[in-house]
Design a protein around this nucleic acid. Structure first.
Lengths: 114, 114
DNA sequence: AGTAGATATTGACAACTATCGATATTCTAA
DNA sequence: TTAGAATATCGATAGTTGTCAATATCTACT
């Protein structure tokens, strides 16, 4: 356990202290990890960057396939993951689906990194 | 492409505008995604939470195995991933390895979420 | 109704990852 | 130098994930 008497970074012979409990609960860790998993793919990050920077605040899904350079099912799959993570919102209008960023969600996640 | 003339959110028959280029480059997306991948595991998040909240600013690896409840090789593996992502720093002192958080790295990542 | 276009779902496959037991490496102390 | 302890690496395995082709679903228009 915790090496004690680490004065001036000297090496002590005593090791390993009492186990404190973990600040982040298992449940919270699972939830947070889920969001980071949604952010852990370069294609999704690029999708997010397009959606977040849209001048009109929203982007049609049809405008995402070509620039991203992946198949339509793949883009649809990634958008679903971003949506389920709460990072984007969507609205169906006619045949098209419009995506918008959820900045509160992003800042909430960002704040968990201190 | 982009449906035009979306007055009052009406559905237009014109779709899909010109492809703008993507704000986030492929290279930047890859790098960012790598950090989020490091953050996408609950065990690593809990390790980070322990290390970040250490009163002395550092934690001995030997103090992480028992609370986390995983095998020593597994904890070592996760610590390596956190280290390689730049999220923690480490220093070997004698037989022990001491880990500390890298808050600048965390805020740098956090700021990429706006 | 019937057609055409946009998006979602399914199924399959390759690549990656978390995990552990066993083992190797590194360091201290006797 | 030998023993013992802390950490890292290796090898194997089960589970997850990104990708696409094929297909289904939904909507608008004729």
């Amino acid at each position: 356990m915790t090496p004690k008497n680490q004065k001036a970074k000297a090496v002590s012979k005593v090791c390993c202290g009492t186990a404190r409990d973990i600040p982040l609960s298992e449940r919270d860790a699972d939830e947070l990890a889920a969001v980071f998993t949604a952010l852990s793919d370069p294609v999704r990050l690029r999708l997010l960057s397009i959606i977040s920077s849209a001048p009109e605040g929203e982007v049609c899904a049809c405008d995402l396939v070509t620039p991203i350079g992946k198949s339509q099912p793949t883009v649809s799959h990634h958008l679903k993951i971003l949506f389920e993570a709460g990072l984007v919102d969507r609205e169906k209008r006619g045949v098209w689906v419009w995506y918008r960023a959820v900045p509160e969600r992003m800042s909430a996640v960002a704040s968990r990194l201190r």
